[in-house]
Design a protein around this nucleic acid. Structure first.
Lengths: 330, 330
DNA sequence: GTGAAAGCGCTAACAC
DNA sequence: GTGTTAGCGCTTTCAC
C-alpha cells in the first residue's frame, strides 16, 4: 500500500532524486559506488518507478492501441500478435480494443487514444474516414491504417482488389460466369476493395441475376448463412459464390449443406483469410491466405519508425501480398 | 501538435481551471451558463483532458492488464473478450500481454503492472506462485487468478480436477483401463489439476504401462503430435488418450491418422476447451467445454468489485463449471 | 457558485 | 560526478 517514491530512495541513500533517476535511466554517468548504493536501497525498499509520473513528464506512454472489429475473429489474434511481436523489443505495451464494427466505438477509441496520449495506433475500422485518422496523426500519434493511407497515416494492405479480381477470374473460368459475391459490412474499406475486385474480375458481362449477385452482409458466420440463403432462394441460384471472408464462407457452407446440396458440385465457395478452420472443414475451403502475422509485424514496424522519430514524413504503404489457396470447395 | 490544457480553456472562458475541471467531472455544481460556456470553448479549442496527468493525480489508471500464454490459442481471445465486456461499462481499457508460457515474461509483466500503476490484473500463468500475485494484490492492485486464489487474490476456475476425473472415468468405462494422459506444460496449475483429476479418475488400478501413460508436453499441436508419437511407439499403445487441451488433441489426432490408424476405433481421443475447430475436424473431437467467455466475464466482475472499493476482503472463488461434450473421437 | 494554490512523482535544464 | 529546482496537467482542499 505504501508508495515508495524516488525521494524516499534518494533520502535513504543520501543522494539527490536526480542521481537516483540517472542511475535507472543511464542518461548521465553515475559513479560505480553510488550506483551500487542506490540500487541496493531501491531493492530493499521495493521501489518501482511510477510510470505514470514519468509519462506525464516526458510525454510518452510506451503504449500503443490496436483497434479492431472483434478479437474473436481468428484473423485478429494472429494479427495482434504480429504487432506485439514487432513492438516488443522497444518495450511497448498494447491496448486491445474491439469495436464490434460500430462507428461510435471506432470514434470513441480514437478519442481515448488522444486523451491517454498514446504513442501509436493501429487501426482496422469500417466507418471512420482516413481523414479523421490523419487528424490524430497530426496531433503527434503514430498511426497505421489497415487499408489506405492518408496524410501522415501509414498503410498496410494485401492488395485486396487485385486479389479479389484474380479469384473471381478463377471462378469464372472454372464454373462459368454465374458467380455471386457475399460482401461483409458495406462501408468497410476491406469490403469495398474486395467488391471492386470482384467486379473487375467478372468483367463486362454482368452475370445472370445482375446486381442480385452482390450481397452485403456482416463479416460473420451468421451473415454468411443469411447471404447464401438469399442466393439459393433465387432462380436459378449462382454456380459459385465468393465470400468476403472465411467466416462468411463457413456460414455459406453450412447453409448449402443444410439444404442437402453439395459443395463444390452444386455450388462452389471461396473464402478469404485462411483461418485455421478453413483447412479442417469438409469440404476444405478454397480461400485467400492473407498472412495476418506478417501484416501485424509490418504495422508494428511502420509504427516504430515513427515513434522513434526516425521517420516523420507523409504516408508510406507496405504491401503484404495475399495468395489463393485452392482446396476442395472451389 | 499543440497541447491544449485545462488552463488554456480556463483562460479563454474567463474562469478558473478549477471550474473547468468541475464542469467535466461533475464533482461540484457549476452554473448552467458557465457549463455551457466552458464546454463550447473546450470544443472550439479541441481540448482533450490529459488522462496521464489525471491518473498521476488521482492514482488510478482505468487500465487492467490481462496476462495469458498466447492470444493465438483460440481459447484466449474469447476469454479476453469476456473480461473486456464485463469491464466496458466501467470504462476500463485492457492491456493484453502474451507470456509464451515463459517465467521471465510472467514476472516482467507483474513488474510492469506495478510500475504502470494499473488498477487490475487478470492472470493466467504457469510459473508464478500465487504468493507473488498476493504481494501485487497487497500493493493495491485488484488481482484475479485463473485457478487458485490466495490472500487477496480472487480466483476463477472451472473445476478442472473433478471434471478431468469424470472424463477419465468415462474413458475407462468405454474403452477399458488402458488410458493415457498427455499433459501440457508441466508446472502449469491447469496442467497439474487436470493430471490430478486423471489420476483420481483412473482409480487404484494403474493401467498397463504405469507412469509411461502420463506424458508432459506443451499446450500446443506440436506437443500433441510428439506426445502421441511416444505413446504409439509403446507396446502396446494405449486404447484411449486424454489430452490436456484441444490443441494437444488435434496434434495427437494428426499423429494417429498419419500412421494409418483410426480414431476412435484404434485409439480414442479426448481434448479440453471445445475450441471452434473441435467440432469441425474429422472425426469431430470429444472434449470438455469450458466457457471462456463466461470465465472472462466472471474475472471481470471480481475485478470490478475490488476496483470500485465495494469489496476488499480475502480471496473469493467463482466456479464456471465445464461439461463433457461427446462427439466422435471418443 | 467560484478561485488560489498545493502537490501527485518524475525528468532535465542549469548550476557547481 | 552530483544537486537545486521548475515544471508536465490535472484534482482537490480550503477559502470566500
Amino acid at each position: 500500500m505504501e508508495r515508495i517514491t524516488i525521494e524516499d530512495v534518494a533520502a535513504r541513500a543520501g543522494v539527490s532524486p536526480t542521481t537516483v533517476s540517472h542511475v535507472f535511466s543511464g542518461h548521465r554517468p553515475v559513479s560505480a559506488e553510488t550506483q551500487e548504493l542506490v540500487r541496493s536501497v531501491a531493492d530493499e525498499l521495493g521501489y518501482r518507478a511510477n510510470a505514470v509520473a514519468k509519462s506525464l513528464r516526458i510525454n510518452r506512454t510506451s503504449t500503443v492501441m490496436i483497434v479492431l472489429p472483434d478479437i474473436t475473429n481468428p484473423f485478429y489474434p494472429i494479427f495482434a500478435r504480429g504487432v506485439q511481436d514487432a513492438l516488443r523489443p522497444a518495450e511497448y505495451q498494447t491496448l486491445l480494443c474491439n469495436t464490434d464494427s460500430r462507428k461510435e466505438e471506432e470514434l470513441a477509441f480514437l478519442e481515448e487514444a488522444r486523451s491517454r496520449r498514446l504513442d501509436g495506433l493501429v487501426f482496422m475500422g469500417y466507418w471512420v474516414p482516413p481523414s479523421d485518422l490523419a487528424k490524430l496523426a497530426d496531433s503527434g500519434i503514430a498511426v497505421v491504417n489497415l487499408g489506405e493511407g492518408y496524410g501522415r497515416v501509414d498503410a498496410v494492405s494485401s492488395g485486396d482488389r487485385a486479389m479479389a479480381a484474380e479469384v473471381t477470374r478463377y471462378l469464372v473460368q472454372r464454373y462459368g460466369s454465374d458467380v455471386a459475391f457475399i460482401d461483409g459490412t458495406g462501408p468497410a474499406p476491406v469490403a469495398r476493395s474486395r467488391m471492386a475486385g470482384f467486379r473487375d474480375g467478372r468483367g463486362r458481362r454482368p452475370s445472370r441475376g445482375g446486381s442480385a449477385r452482390e450481397l452485403s452482409e456482416d463479416f460473420t458466420k451468421v451473415g454468411g448463412r443469411r447471404g447464401m440463403a438469399t442466393l439459393l432462394d433465387a432462380t436459378p441460384p449462382p454456380r459459385a459464390v465468393f465470400c468476403a471472408n472465411d467466416l462468411i464462407a463457413l456460414g455459406a457452407l453450412e447453409e448449402v449443406q443444410s439444404r442437402g446440396l453439395r459443395v463444390p458440385e452444386d455450388v462452389a465457395i471461396v473464402g478469404w483469410d485462411d483461418i485455421d478452420v478453413a483447412a479442417l472443414v469438409s469440404p476444405s475451403l478454397t480461400t485467400v491466405r492473407s498472412h495476418p502475422q506478417r501484416i501485424g509485424e509490418a504495422s508494428g514496424q511502420l509504427l516504430l519508425s515513427r515513434m522513434s522519430g526516425e521517420y516523420d514524413g507523409p504516408s508510406r504503404a507496405t504491401l503484404v501480398p495475399a495468395e489463393l489457396v485452392i482446396r476442395e470447395s472451389a
